[in-house]
């Protein structure tokens, strides 16, 4: 039987209350949201928080809404809500692509976007999704609120810019014209973590790429933001040869490790293929050519 180590527990009823609880218990306290990363780690004693602050009652952090030219996603939004959101489907179709292959529907009822991002597992899909669409995240702490880019957010494997005593409250995604996006993943079996996955977002204007974001999951020690792909594609008209070249760059720039999911050369090859597919699909969506 796997049992977490003894710990304390309390339920927060507001973000301020959660921050106060974290402050009172110091760095050995942890927030628990959906719990589908933290509890398994606690059972394996890979995580041994001395005090849990349950934030499942914070409905104030469960929303997906448009505010002018920004989509705001509350950190406690569950996977199932991301998958079903009409607003996200309209502007960032890659959320539904990714959510269809994140764990299984029962896990998706519970897991949250904030929890997924803060777990910062390099194999986790939503970190790549948010990096590709160039999201910002809002972090609140005792000193107030700050907004950081996904690039600044990803500090290392399982480490983010969210410090002890702080809470991730919101994900902000700017809406820009001509957007299309897609997430492509290959896994060993239904619901598994990726062998590799690619998130692509493109913004097309006047027949050329105004901007491109390409990020990879399970292709390195952290989420890999392949900035060279954006550099290559910006200002160019969409085309199959470009996607081919982008795939080659992504295969070169990723840093996969050999593990039970496959050797390095296989993963690099897979990253190239998935990058090409994701860019192709994202572009088709941007051009509204997708059937």
């Amino acid at each position: 039987m796997q049992t977490p180590a003894p710990c304390g527990y309390e339920r927060a009823t507001s973000v301020d209350g959660a921050l106060a609880a974290l402050a009172a218990h110091g760095p050995t306290a942890r927030l628990i949201a959906g719990g589908h990363s933290l509890l398994p780690m606690m059972k394996l004693r890979l995580a041994t928080p001395e005090h849990l602050v349950d934030i499942n009652d914070l409905d104030e952090l469960a929303y997906i809404e448009r505010d002018g030219d920004v989509i705001r996603i509350g950190a406690m939004t569950r996977h199932v809500e991301l998958q079903r959101s009409a607003l996200l489907a309209e502007h960032f179709a890659l959320f539904a692509d990714a959510e269809a292959v994140i764990a299984d529907p029962v896990v998706r009822n519970r897991g949250t976007i904030g929890g997924s991002l803060c777990q910062a597992d390099p194999g986790e899909d939503l970190s790549a999704v948010c990096a590709a669409i160039k999201a910002d995240v809002v972090i609140r702490g005792p000193a107030g609120e700050r907004v950081v880019s996904m690039d600044e957010f990803h500090v290392g494997p399982y480490v983010t810019a969210v410090a002890d005593g702080e809470i991730l409250t919101e994900i902000r995604v700017p809406i820009r014209p001509g957007a299309g996006s897609a997430h492509e993943k290959v896994e060993r079996r239904a619901g598994d973590f990726a062998i590799a996955a690619a998130s692509a977002a493109v913004w097309v204007g006047g027949g050329t790429f105004a901007d491109v974001g390409l990020a990879l999951a399970a292709a390195g020690p952290i989420t890999v933001d392949v900035t060279r792909v954006g550099e290559l594609l910006r200002g160019q008209p969409p085309g199959e040869e470009l996607f081919e070249a982008a795939g080659a760059i992504a295969a070169e720039d990723c840093m996969p490790m050999a593990d039970t999911r496959g050797p390095v050369d296989y993963k690099r090859h897979l990253v190239g293929v998935l990058t090409k597919r994701a860019l192709r699909r994202a572009t088709a969506r941007a051009l509204q050519q997708e059937a």
Binding site: Y9, I32, G35, H36, L39, P40, L52, D54, N56, P105, V106, V107, N109, R110
Partner: peptide, 19 residues
């Protein structure tokens, strides 16, 4: 271990009784 928690299907091995 799937049960329904407030109507939603959840895996009860990954929810604390306290939650």
């Amino acid at each position: 271990c799937i049960v329904r928690l407030d109507g939603q299907a959840v895996k009860s091995c990954t929810v604390l009784a306290a939650m």
